[in-house]
Amino acid sequence: MIDFELWDTLLRQYVDQQGRVDYLAWKTEQPQVLADWLSSLKQLHLESNSTPLEELALWVNLYNAFTISTILERYPIKSIRPKILGVPNWLGFLWFFQRRVYEVFGRRYSLAQIENQILRDKLQEPRIHFSIVCASVGCPLLRAGAYFPEQVVEQLNEDARRFINNPEKVRYDSLSKTLYCSKIFKWYRQDFLKVAPSIPEYIRSYLEKDLPLTAATSISYLYYDWNLNQRIS
């Protein structure tokens, strides 16, 4: 397995508890460390006897590391969703996720491949939607540390609880009896419905307070903020 201690150290140094990244300090102080580490992984071999937990930790770490490395290359930027004359450039946005430029284990991957073909289809883990981070404010909070196989189940549960109990991502209006939640629950609805009867009931299972959420609860989706998840020093 890959040694993630360096990645863990970088995250602890440059990510705060709100999941914001100090890209300026990272790029100023250690501009090549992450890129060089990722480059060293290109010719490693993926172990055929890896356990599902080892694969889960591996690919969540790689997804986030590849994303942060790309942001560091381009920084300063305001968002991963570029604009042309004030209009969102959706082709450029899709290119960010679809380009196969991330080389590991002798193959090239895109972020979309890692997310959809490995983490979603192969490993069947809906909690990755609270753990993989596309570097935007609307994403889950980036964990200030790496994922490790012996801890990854607990870490994913922590991520789910942190996301669902964050009023910026999920909140309930008792007057209108409406559940307001992140569009992540809309985009990946089918993943959550594999393990729960409905989106409100999935959310309720992670809430710290008991709310009257049922399959019949009305849902409204919150604005998704594509601005960069950066920390301003």
Score class of each variant (00 low, 15 high):
residue 90 W to H: 13
residue 228 L to F: 10
residue 96 F to C: 03
residue 202 Y to C: 06
residue 37 W to Y: 15
residue 77 I to N: 01
residue 72 L to W: 09
residue 199 I to R: 08
residue 137 V to Y: 08
residue 87 V to C: 00
residue 182 S to C: 04
residue 152 V to I: 12
residue 121 D to N: 14
residue 159 D to E: 10
residue 54 E to K: 03
residue 179 L to C: 03
residue 46 L to V: 08
residue 97 F to Q: 03
residue 227 N to V: 00
residue 28 T to A: 15
residue 232 I to Q: 13
residue 227 N to D: 15
residue 49 N to K: 12
residue 82 P to C: 10
residue 190 Q to D: 15
residue 193 L to V: 04
residue 23 Y to W: 11
residue 3 D to A: 05
residue 50 S to V: 04
residue 173 D to E: 12
residue 32 Q to S: 12
residue 95 W to N: 14
residue 198 S to I: 06
residue 43 Q to N: 15
residue 67 T to N: 00
residue 93 F to N: 12
residue 205 S to R: 03
residue 219 I to V: 11
residue 127 R to Q: 13
residue 55 E to R: 14
residue 226 W to T: 01
residue 163 F to C: 04
residue 60 V to C: 03
residue 114 I to D: 06
residue 195 V to S: 05
residue 169 K to D: 10
residue 12 R to V: 06
residue 30 Q to C: 09
residue 233 S to F: 10
residue 74 R to F: 06
residue 37 W to F: 15
residue 223 Y to I: 00
residue 51 T to R: 12
residue 192 F to W: 10
residue 134 C to I: 02
residue 9 T to C: 06
residue 104 V to P: 02
residue 198 S to M: 08
residue 121 D to I: 01
residue 90 W to G: 03
residue 167 P to W: 11
residue 67 T to M: 13
residue 187 W to T: 07
residue 222 L to V: 01
residue 189 R to G: 04
residue 184 I to A: 01
residue 33 V to G: 00
residue 78 K to N: 14
residue 116 N to K: 14
residue 5 E to N: 14
residue 133 V to Y: 00
residue 148 F to G: 00
residue 115 E to H: 06
residue 220 S to L: 08
residue 58 L to F: 03
residue 89 N to V: 00
residue 18 Q to I: 00
residue 100 R to G: 09
residue 152 V to M: 07
residue 6 L to A: 04
residue 16 D to C: 02
residue 177 K to D: 13
residue 51 T to N: 09
residue 145 G to Y: 11
residue 4 F to G: 00
residue 230 Q to Y: 12
residue 91 L to T: 14
residue 111 L to N: 00
residue 158 E to H: 10
residue 9 T to S: 15
residue 61 N to C: 07
residue 152 V to N: 07
residue 231 R to C: 05
residue 12 R to A: 15
residue 52 P to E: 12
residue 150 E to R: 10
residue 226 W to M: 01
residue 139 C to L: 01
residue 43 Q to W: 11
residue 175 L to N: 13
residue 211 L to D: 07
residue 197 P to M: 11
residue 161 R to V: 06
residue 2 I to A: 08
residue 157 N to F: 09
residue 121 D to L: 11
residue 183 K to E: 13
residue 228 L to M: 07
residue 100 R to N: 09
residue 216 A to C: 00
residue 85 L to T: 02
residue 201 E to C: 06
residue 203 I to F: 11
residue 231 R to V: 03
residue 128 I to H: 08
residue 120 R to G: 04
residue 181 C to E: 07
residue 149 P to L: 10
residue 164 I to H: 07
residue 75 Y to F: 15
residue 136 S to W: 12
residue 48 S to C: 05
residue 12 R to E: 15
residue 150 E to C: 04
residue 76 P to A: 11
residue 105 F to D: 04
residue 99 R to Q: 13
residue 113 Q to I: 06
residue 123 L to T: 08
residue 36 D to C: 03
residue 116 N to S: 09
residue 139 C to W: 04
residue 18 Q to G: 11
residue 56 L to A: 05
residue 23 Y to F: 13
residue 195 V to A: 02
residue 22 D to K: 08
residue 103 E to A: 10
residue 11 L to V: 02
residue 10 L to H: 08
residue 111 L to S: 08
residue 138 G to Q: 05
residue 66 F to S: 08
residue 2 I to K: 10
residue 21 V to W: 07
